[in-house]
Design a protein around this nucleic acid. Sequence first.
DNA 1: TATTGTTATACTCTATAACTATA
DNA 2: TATAGTTATAGAGTATAACAATA
Lengths: 149, 149
Amino acid sequence: MSVQNEHVELGVLTELVGYHLRRASSTFAGDFARALEGTGMRQVPFGILSVVDANPGINQGAAGRVLGIQRANMVAIINELVDRGWIERKVPAGDRRAFALAMTPAGKAQLAQSLARIREHEEQMLSGFDADDRAQLLSLLARIEAKER
Amino acid sequence: MSVQNEHVELGVLTELVGYHLRRASSTFAGDFARALEGTGMRQVPFGILSVVDANPGINQGAAGRVLGIQRANMVAIINELVDRGWIERKVPAGDRRAFALAMTPAGKAQLAQSLARIREHEEQMLSGFDADDRAQLLSLLARIEAKER
DNA sequence: TATTGTTATACTCTATAACTATA
DNA sequence: TATAGTTATAGAGTATAACAATA
């Protein structure tokens, strides 16, 4: 029997929003990875670049908090971004515990290049979605994100 | 400065559907884990229970395929479900390569108990969503899942 | 040859606890 | 004391390659 002809029921999963969120997110992430293949860019590091770019001088803890990444897990990711020359750590005058993160010119360029690929990938994944569909989806997702505790 | 007063911009992430899908899915998964805490149930094993229940006699490969889980990764999960006495492997008469998976009575009970908790958790996460909002969300997610390749 | 299940392995993401330097 | 960053560690999910048994 070929895979195409396989008839398999999902059972109670069919009606569970959590299941479909997980699968849709996974489908999106898989296409993201293919679209960025060879660049070494992944979803999480890209998120950090976006936040550092939008908040020059932000520290690791604050960047991690807005992205839902714990302090301990930020260390390796920030190290990677610094090693690639995309962001830099500066010791601020006021509080010598925290580093101020800032984009380098190479980081800015990387962010722009990745963003171009990501926009293509989003167009692909959302083909068939009109402006209303996209706005609806973003609005519904935002209402779920707001339930984070 | 308290966390509440922290003002941090997401930058280009704000408009990216992939980012919000990932965060909403993560918010949902976190609440799922809290709702099922102590029962040992997780999203992936629950999905398998649902599929086996809806397709008695299905084999590991087919169950994994519909859920997007690879053969190699099914082994440990099926072992766990068998060890817990929730499903059983039977050697079918026709094809002795594949096992036929079936629910045990304990597995049926576990599925029902977990489902009750999961429905409460979904009510919590979707409070404020009317029937139309839920149908819209499921429909939009299904259109993204259909892009899986 | 192709398929099913299996083993081994590795990488990403996530989670917790404990430590240090600084405030 | 509280906070920022760090280290160590572990678990869950996911990915690939290679193998044995069966078809």
